[in-house]
Amino acid sequence: MGLVYEPVDLEREAFEDLRGFIEKLLSKPAPGSAGRTGAWRLYRPAVDAGRCIKCGICWLYCPDDVISWAPKGLPIIDYSYCKGCGICSSVCPVKAIDMVLEGE
């Protein structure tokens, strides 16, 4: 038929596209996939180190896994992501976590 096709550097274009669409299609695990969710917080959990019995129950129930805890250690809360739900405070068996209004 004598049709002349436009010469295209298929290989190169395809390589760039492959990289491009894989980047758009896939996401990689990383904290902050909804941004700094600490900004959602109205009340801040404050751990009373004197009262805390280091049981880890606050760690267990924290939905956002923002509490670092090692056996026999104090819980450390990552306030940049803590949404302030208050679950840690409500499950604490010795009431060692207070919810404090942000800004106070």
């Binding site: 096709y5 596209d17 491009g20 758009k24 996401s27 695990p29």
Partner: peptide, 28 residues
């Protein structure tokens, strides 16, 4: 990795554009 996470609208459009380009190359 996860496949198909929610994202900016531009990602949806670009992914369609990549299908479009692949379809063009498919002719060759």
């Amino acid at each position: 990795f996860s496949v198909g996470n929610l994202g900016p609208d531009e990602v949806t459009m670009e992914l369609r554009w990549y299908v479009w380009r692949a379809m063009e190359r498919a002719k060759h």
